[in-house]
Design a protein around this nucleic acid. Structure first.
Length: 295
DNA sequence: ATGACATTCTTGT
DNA sequence: ACAAGAATGTCAT
C-alpha cells in the first residue's frame, strides 16, 4: 500500500552498489563479531557464499582496504591509537592549514545554526527537499533547504520509509517534497573525496539546541582518521561532567557523516552506539581508513 | 569481566 | 514542572 511512497529513484548502477553493500555489510558484521579470532578470507567468503578472490576484489574496491586490513582498522588497538595521538585537535584553527597535502584533507563545510525562533517552530515554514542516493554505506537520505544541507540519514534498501519518518519527526512542521535532482549533487559531493575541496565548501544548516550545536561544532573539528572520546568532547565544550549528555547530543545529530559523529568513541577506544547501526559506524571508520591509505 | 549508579541534557506528558 | 531515557564513565565486586 505504501508503494507510492517508496521513491522510484534508484538507478540501475546504484542498485548493484546497494547489493554490494549488503554483502560488504554482512562481512563487516562477521568481522566485528569475531575479530578476536582473526577470521581468514576463506571463512569470510564462505559466510556469504562467495569465492575468496571475488570477495577480496569486491571488498577492496569498496573500501580501498583488503578484508584483513579492514579487520585491523576496526580493532580496539587501532581506535586507541586514534585517541592516543595527542595533537591539540580542537585548539588549532582547523579551517586554515589543511589545504596542504593533496587529498589528505577533510570535507570542508560552512555551517550556520538556525535562529532560536526558527528552531522553536520545529521547522515551520521550512521547505525541505529530499532524495535517496546510493552511497558506500547503503542508501543515504539527503535533505536540503535553500540554505544548505539540513539532514543526512542512512538506511538499507527497503528501509526508506522508516528513515524518512525518523528525519521528519525532528522537524514535524516543515513541508516535505521529494526532489532527487536537487539532492543528487549534494550526495555526489559528500561521498566522493575527490570533491572535497576548500574552494567548494558544503553549506550546512545546523538545527538544534545551543548545547547540541556546540557539540556538533566540536565534532566538525575532528579531522578524518582521528577520534575523540565522549568525555574529551565534554571537556572541550566546557562541560567536563556531562559526557553522557554529549552522547545524547551526538546521537541527535541530524547530518550524520558530514558532522562526523562516527568519530566519537568510548574512552577505551571501543566503538559504542550509532543511531544508524553500529555496523555502519564500523563501515564508515573502515572506509575512512581506506581513503587515508590511498594517499 | 560484570554490574550498579552517578550526572547532565532533552523530550514528552 | 516532572520523569524517563540516552551513542558514557567510574568504581566496586
Amino acid at each position: 500500500m505504501n508503494a507510492m511512497t517508496q521513491p522510484q529513484t534508484v538507478l540501475t548502477d546504484e542498485i548493484t552498489a546497494g547489493a554490494d553493500y549488503e554483502i560488504v555489510r554482512k562481512v563487516i558484521e562477521t568481522i566485528s563479531e569475531n575479530y578476536r579470532d582473526q577470521p581468514s578470507l576463506e571463512e569470510l567468503a564462505a559466510s556469504v557464499n562467495m569465492e575468496p578472490t571475488a570477495l577480496q576484489k569486491l571488498f577492496t574496491r569498496w573500501a580501498g582496504l583488503s578484508p584483513k586490513a579492514f579487520l585491523q582498522a576496526v580493532t580496539l588497538d587501532h581506535a586507541r591509537r586514534l585517541l592516543a595521538s595527542d595533537m591539540p585537535l580542537l585548539d588549532t584553527a582547523y579551517e586554515v592549514g589543511l589545504s596542504g597535502p593533496g587529498r589528505l584533507h577533510d570535507l570542508f563545510v560552512t555551517h550556520e545554526a538556525m535562529s532560536p525562533g526558527e528552531f522553536k517552530a520545529k521547522g515551520a515554514g521550512l521547505a525541505m527537499r529530499y532524495g535517496f542516493h546510493a552511497c558506500p554505506f547503503g542508501l543515504a537520505l539527503v535533505m536540503i533547504t535553500d540554505r544548505g544541507l539540513a539532514g543526512l540519514a542512512f538506511c538499507d534498501p527497503g528501509g526508506e520509509r522508516e528513515a524518512l519518518a525518523d528525519m521528519q519527526s525532528r522537524w514535524p512542521n516543515a513541508r516535505y517534497g521529494e526532489d532527487v535532482a536537487a539532492t543528487a549533487p549534494y550526495a555526489a559531493r559528500i561521498f566522493d573525496p575527490a570533491n572535497w575541496r576548500p574552494d567548494r565548501p558544503l553549506k550546512v544548516v545546523l538545527i538544534g539546541t545551543d548545547f547540541q550545536v556546540s557539540v556538533w561544532n566540536a565534532l566538525l573539528k575532528i579531522p578524518m582518521g582521528k577520534a575523540l572520546a565522549y568525555s574529551d568532547i565534554a571537556r572541550k565544550i566546557g562541560k567536563p561532567d556531562a559526557p553522557r549528555a554529549v552522547g545524547a547530543a551526538v546521537g541527535a545529530n541530524p547530518v550524520s557523516f558530514v558532522v562526523p559523529c562516527h568519530r566519537a568513541v568510548g574512552k577505551s577506544g571501543a566503538l559504542t552506539g550509532y543511531h544508524w547501526g553500529l555496523t555502519r559506524k564500523r563501515a564508515i571508520l573502515g572506509w575512512e581508513a581506506g581513503q587515508l591509505a590511498q594517499v
